[in-house]
Amino acid sequence: MTQKAMLIDTTKCMGCRGCQVACKQWNQLAAENTRFTGSYQNPPNLSASTWTLIKFIEPEGDPIRWLFRKEQCFHCGDPACVDACPTGALKKRPDGIVWIDQKICAGCKYCVHACPFQTPHTDHDTGTAKKCRMCIDRVDNGLKPACVTACPTGAVLYGAREDMLKVAKKRKAIVEKQTGASVRIYGETELGGLGVITVLADKASVYGLPEQPKKPLLLPRWLIGIVPGAVILYGMFKNFTGVREKAEKEEKAKEGQS
């Protein structure tokens, strides 16, 4: 099966939020009661009923720069959430889609804490974790994800991962030539190659993304607990042995006296 991927070209996004609405509609996600936070960004963050949203970024010190980035699950090549899931509800398909089987998820919230992008959220009505599933039901029937279909500028594309990378590289060359900005193709190699590749017109941190996203490592953490623990146990054994030997000596001395 060929690897599929989504391409988000922030340099083409105009912040219309058509993708946000299309996602809510197709996945039948409830509206959220939100408040004005001083930005067009609304709701302020991803949640169990908001699987994608446009981040409106106003970099400090530049009054006329206004950046948009579509936030959603990155469908990592090496996903921390799938590693963390103790029930097997989180699955990665051969085509790259990472999804949560709602029939299996027990709601332990470990994926919520494991994800380097804070993508999955707990739905307090169902008790399970939820996030973007790349419109698995549409994709399997030959359609494109709802947000891709809705995007009026072609900023969100879906197809073979190789093709998406080609488009991203072409776009990088054009934007760099036209604006002089240094463009980053986020997701080409990060975390085993993300299933959502983002063309960024600035550093990742400007867009609110970790420059080098990392998956939490397990083995060193086990060792940092087990090794000192074993040393402490040995010390404890020595201590008890010492106490016993001392008591035995005293007893012998007493016997010797009497």
Binding site: A84, A114, F117, Q118, P216, R221, W222, I224, P228
Partner: peptide
């Protein structure tokens, strides 16, 4: 004893992912 530390340390949480947390929880 180690698992209690590793559980919350092996996450992307800024405070918990501290590598020394398992040692703290074991002691």
């Amino acid at each position: 004893t180690t698992y209690t530390g590793v559980l919350i340390s092996a996450t992307s949480n800024a405070l918990w992912s501290n590598y020394l947390l398992p040692f703290v929880f074991v002691s």
